[in-house]
Design a protein around this nucleic acid. Structure first.
Length: 268
DNA sequence: ATGGCTAACAACGTTAGA
């Protein structure tokens, strides 16, 4: 049996718990990684997950903003969190998932959005984003390359031209500026990661996982960006079987502005 | 190029998202 792992920036897990359970009931992933849960760890709605068989739950939450969680039907061998840039702001959680003979290390990230102005000199949020990427690179460099590992989450950067609705019009818009794209690419290449989504969905196809709330008709204008990613190490890549971007989730009632992305991994 | 929306919170404006 393959294992399926989903990532979803939920933009408040408490407000959208009904969407989450609906997603789990329909898509039945083995593991769900959430970002922007926007609640303290002890306010995470555990029961909704437990009653669906997601009994292994690891939450790195904080009040009001950010926050990540991993919920799983498969047991964890280990779990950890890391702070970045000297802040305690709940942007990372990792676990070791046990699947038969495999142990897969799973890193769930929520990279800073970076504010509006793409200049680190005048915008400290953008400086933070770049510093975060740099620290990610240093921390992960070489450490996970030789094991089966997944790095996923809301990385808040759309790297390729077809990861945004208009490459030209977004070159100076935070999430698609060359300096961020280069920063993300350095994290990826230094760690030996493979962009699993673009392995299976060719880069010449437009692909988005986020559409702004500030659109009267997101589907008609389709001005999206691919901000949510799933990466795997070369050790795990041969087991990659499928990728699904659940675009329909953007049209659910009171949706998140991000949609789930699901990877299917064959058992060893 | 602009405008526009959504969420949390000692919350009815402010801060953040991207």
């Amino acid at each position: 049996m393959p294992i399926s792992i989903a990532t979803w920036n939920i933009n408040s897990v408490r407000l959208r718990i009904g969407l989450v359970t609906g997603f789990l009931d329909q898509y039945n992933p083995d593991v769900l990684c959430l970002q922007e849960i926007k609640c303290q760890t002890d306010l995470f709605p555990l029961e909704a997950f437990r009653e669906r068989g997601y009994r292994h739950i690891f939450v790195n939450g904080q009040k009001g903003y950010h926050g990540v969680a991993i919920v799983s039907k498969k047991p964890f061998a280990d779990s950890a969190v890391r702070g970045f840039c000297g802040k305690i702001d709940s942007r990372h959680a990792s676990v070791d998932i046990r699947d038969r003979d495999d142990t897969i290390r799973l890193h769930n990230f929520y990279v800073p959005a970076g504010g509006d102005e793409p200049d680190p000199e005048i915008n400290e949020k953008f400086a933070h984003k770049l510093a975060f990427l740099d620290e990610m690179k240093s921390w992960l460099k070489g450490t996970e390359t030789d094991r089966k590992a997944i790095l996923l989450g809301d990385l808040n950067i759309a790297p390729h031209e077809n990861d945004v609705w208009s490459h030209k019009q977004l070159l100076k818009v935070v999430s698609h500026t060359p300096i961020e794209v280069e920063g993300l690419e350095t994290v990826r290449s230094a760690g030996g990661w493979i962009d699993a989504v673009r392995e299976l969905i060719p880069t010449d196809q437009k692909l988005f996982t986020w559409w702004s709330y500030r659109s009267s008709d997101w589907e008609a204008s389709d001005r999206g960006r691919r901000l949510d990613h799933i990466w795997v190490t070369p050790q795990l890549a041969p087991q990659l079987r499928g990728i699904e971007v659940v675009r329909v989730a953007r049209s659910w009632q009171k949706p998140s502005d991000h949609v789930p992305v699901i990877a299917t991994i064959a058992s060893a």
